[in-house]
Simulated assay, not measured.
Amino acid sequence: METAVKPGPEFWTEGGVWVANSETTPEAEGLAEMALHGLKAQGWCFFQTSGTEGVRKWVGLTKEALLISADAVNRHFGITAEDRWLLALPTHHVGGFGILARAHLSGSAVSRLEGKWSALSFVEACESTQATLASLVPTQVFDLVAARLRAPARMRAVLVGGGALNAELEAEALALGWQVHRTYAMTETGSSVAAQSCPGSALKVLPIWQVRTDAEGVLTVSGPALARGYAVREGGCWRWENIPGEGLRTRDHVEIFETDGMRCLRFMGRMAGTVKILGELVTLGPIQDRIEALRLKLGRGTADAAVCDVADARRESRLVLAVSGMSESEAAEMQKGLNETLRLFEQIQDVRTLNAIPRSDLGKVLLSALRGLL
């Protein structure tokens, strides 16, 4: 199930541009050429993420930035050449690729879990490779706990990112011997901004990062490992958006405080309309725009519909289509039409019928009220 993997040391020093392609990212066509000739970029890596307005963007990180981030994580967790990673995340996401950077600096070995994710195959691979470290998303931790699979004795740390690990799931995982460590990370920072060390739900801010909040409690992060900007493809053409020198204003509400000489960060929640599903950031606005267009196309202008996220123990969130004034067959037709245009993790999971969709005087869906109804 697993194979050895690690890019050669020359990868980290050579110029050129590396694009984290996958089968689901055809939008990358022409990106490397744009970066080389338009940006004069050398030694850059691009990873796809969602923009604030839901436009798919490619985050531009230098290899130097990725290594700075990796070094900070290695220092925090004491990662050395004695460690062995089991890579269970895709390398076209920065969470998986960051493991390769950490291994390059520390000299630790890496084995990759091949094939479709399975909690049992992951544990078997941990045993066969004698892995000491892994990085997982909460959904994968959920699967380990649901299957009641105990951690192998050599597995000393599991870094958990890509979404919030709730207290109940964390406690269950710890009881099974999985030494889970919550992290706070984003594509734009190449890896973790903060990792578990502080008491309670707070995380220690790694020393390479400067963090601050504004009057609304929204986090801005800056530091030497921050991405340079975004490449966005619109109408077949690429354009570049710089990340301001003063830092990246995120979508996250956090609390920042000092304790025992450590600067800590406590995640409080995301700005309205942005949710995480299976470790992927999803913006609801563009999906709602598709609903409005589909209502017109299907002749449902007099009926109403809206997308909403609801809590899900395994996925962190899942999307529901709330409808009003539609028959079951009409609602099913709309769900089918939406899912044909959405990525797998964005798919509408089920449909709920309501008397009315709560909207503001200006016609905007009131997500908080809708969540309450669902």
Rank of each mutant, 00 (worst) to 15 (best):
P7M: 12
P7A: 10
G8D: 08
P9T: 08
P9Y: 14
P9E: 11
E10H: 12
E10W: 15
E10Q: 10
F11A: 02
W12D: 00
W12P: 00
W12M: 00
T13L: 04
T13P: 00
E14G: 03
E14P: 01
G15R: 15
G16Y: 14
V17F: 12
W18V: 05
V19R: 00
V19T: 00
A20E: 01
N21R: 15
N21H: 15
N21L: 14
S22A: 12
S22G: 09
E23A: 11
E23C: 04
E23V: 09
T24W: 14
T24Q: 07
T24M: 06
T25L: 12
T25K: 09
P26Y: 15
P26S: 13
P26F: 15
P26I: 15
E27W: 14
E27K: 07
E27V: 09
A28G: 02
A28T: 09
E29M: 06
E29H: 08
E29D: 06
G30N: 08
G30E: 10
A32H: 08
A32Y: 13
A32T: 07
E33K: 10
E33T: 07
M34E: 06
A35V: 05
A35Y: 07
A35F: 11
A35Q: 03
A35N: 02
L36T: 07
L36V: 07
G38S: 12
L39H: 06
L39P: 00
L39Y: 09
L39V: 03
L39E: 04
L39R: 07
K40H: 14
K40G: 08
A41N: 02
Q42C: 07
Q42K: 12
G43K: 14
G43Y: 15
W44V: 04
W44F: 07
W44D: 01
C45Q: 08
C45T: 06
F46Q: 01
F47T: 03
F47M: 06
F47I: 06
F47V: 05
Q48G: 10
Q48K: 14
T49C: 05
T49E: 05
T49A: 11
S50F: 14
S50N: 06
S50A: 11
G51P: 05
G51I: 13
G51K: 13
G51D: 10
G51F: 15
G51Y: 15
T52C: 00
E53M: 03
G54Y: 10
G54E: 03
V55M: 02
R56V: 09
R56Q: 09
K57Y: 11
K57P: 01
K57V: 11
W58I: 05
W58S: 04
W58C: 04
W58E: 04
W58K: 05
G60K: 07
G60P: 01
G60N: 03
G60H: 07
T62Y: 11
T62K: 05
T62C: 04
T62H: 08
K63H: 07
K63L: 07
K63D: 03
K63Y: 11
E64S: 06
E64P: 01
E64V: 09
A65V: 03
A65M: 03
A65T: 01
L66Y: 14
L66W: 15
L66P: 06
L67W: 14
L67M: 12
I68A: 05
I68T: 05
I68D: 02
I68F: 09
S69F: 15
S69H: 12
A70F: 13
A70D: 04
D71E: 11
V73M: 05
V73F: 10
N74H: 10
N74K: 09
N74E: 06
N74F: 14
